[in-house]
Simulated scan of single mutants.
Amino acid sequence: MLPQPGVFHFLWEICSGTVNEGSAVRTFGRLTDYDAEISKADLSVHHNSIDYHLRVLTSLVEPFEVQIGAKYLVLGEMETTTDHAPLKLSIKLMDTFCTTRQWRFNPILLQDQDFVKFIKEQIDFFFSTNTTDEVSNGTVWDAFKAYIRGQIISYSAGLKRRINNEILLLVDKIKEDDKKYAISPSKELYKHKVELQLEHSLLLTSLIENQLMRTRSDFCIHSDKSGKLLANQLKFDSVKRQITKIRKQDDTFTVDHVGINQTFQEFYTSLYHSDFPHDSNFMHDFLSKLSFPKLSPEDCLSLETSISEEEIITAISSLNSGKAPGPDGFTVEF
């Protein structure tokens, strides 16, 4: 039995006993722990300075993508369990999903002249329609980013469908040419087949470029968060950073970990030791003789003026390409 559409129960409502045992509920929370051996996961929500926890049985949906710290939505039946905790509930999962991937603009689309023309038309249409004195520039700009993002997603989806259809059509043509070439080989037929294979390879290359871009995006998003990617990085980093032996000051080597630590201590103690005399008068005399450059009054006034549009354009143009986008997903190239 499923709960009513659009009906959610908060974790603090479930933990307070307002939901009867055996009832179908829909709730959500942040994943704090997962044990694959016993097929159990823990969700938590912070509300009114109190942390509420929920035990979830995951045997019906395994394997699923686990991301500690991400928000999950769960749907299932209530079942009270006796645990060491004052109150702990479990839900038999029927469906679950993680937070969606953050959208990111694909700069490869800028190489498509049809796309550039389409986007320019959409930009002119939006600002000509929505630029009024009644709405602030910040509101118009935020609305524009949402609108143009939808147009880009729509164009990208249509482009992907066309490329996939062209790939399937090329595969059928290549198979047909192979059959004809096996029966009656000729130079013209072989040349035509090579041209089809080249076109097929170019289309596959464009798809691979998109996948590589998404891989870089995933690495940027998940590289510093708890998960399998970070665990593998730390595993290899710990192996590479392990020091098995070190050369001492007398040019002898030591493999003992106590000797290695002592060698490091001696090296950095000598490195950061200051030979400067602890005399404040000597330091004052030394600094008073230095001549530091100073800004003229004209330079001070020029620095306090408002930032011009030309300076903003110059700063944006000087940014390096291929960098991670901001929260809106738009890269420097766009």
Rank of each mutant, 00 (worst) to 15 (best):
G227V: 02
G227Y: 05
L229I: 11
L229C: 03
A231Q: 11
N232W: 03
N232V: 08
Q233E: 05
Q233C: 14
Q233W: 15
Q233N: 08
L234V: 03
L234I: 07
L234A: 06
L234R: 14
K235Q: 10
F236Y: 15
F236Q: 12
F236S: 09
D237V: 08
V239E: 15
K240Y: 08
Q242I: 05
Q242T: 09
I243N: 02
I243Q: 11
T244G: 02
T244Y: 12
K245H: 13
K245C: 08
K245Q: 13
I246N: 01
I246E: 00
I246W: 00
R247F: 10
K248L: 15
Q249G: 07
D250S: 00
D250A: 02
F253T: 07
F253N: 06
F253H: 05
T254G: 02
T254D: 12
V255A: 10
V255P: 00
D256P: 03
H257V: 12
H257P: 11
H257K: 13
H257A: 10
H257E: 12
H257T: 14
V258N: 15
V258F: 07
G259T: 02
G259H: 03
G259E: 06
G259R: 01
G259V: 01
I260Y: 02
N261T: 07
N261I: 13
Q262N: 14
Q262F: 07
Q262V: 02
T263I: 01
F264Q: 00
Q265C: 09
Q265S: 12
E266L: 01
E266N: 08
Y268L: 10
Y268K: 06
Y268I: 09
Y268N: 03
T269V: 00
T269C: 12
S270G: 12
L271Q: 14
L271D: 04
Y272M: 07
Y272H: 11
Y272T: 06
Y272P: 04
H273T: 14
H273S: 13
H273Q: 12
S274Q: 05
S274A: 00
D275Q: 09
D275C: 03
D275H: 09
F276L: 10
P277C: 03
P277I: 06
D279Y: 01
S280G: 06
N281K: 10
N281A: 11
M283K: 14
M283P: 06
M283A: 11
H284I: 15
H284L: 15
D285N: 11
D285Y: 07
L287K: 04
S288Q: 15
S288E: 15
S288Y: 05
S288K: 09
S288R: 08
K289A: 10
K289Q: 13
L290V: 04
L290N: 04
L290Y: 00
L290Q: 08
F292K: 04
F292G: 02
F292H: 06
F292C: 03
P293K: 05
K294F: 06
L295Y: 09
S296W: 01
S296C: 00
P297H: 03
E298S: 04
E298Y: 02
D299F: 01
D299W: 01
D299V: 08
C300R: 14
C300I: 13
L301D: 14
L301T: 11
L301I: 11
S302G: 03
S302K: 15
L303G: 02
E304I: 00
E304W: 03
E304Q: 15
E304L: 07
T305R: 12
T305P: 01
T305G: 06
S306C: 07
I307E: 13
I307N: 01
I307W: 02
S308A: 01
E309Q: 13
E309W: 04
E309I: 12
E309Y: 07
E310K: 13
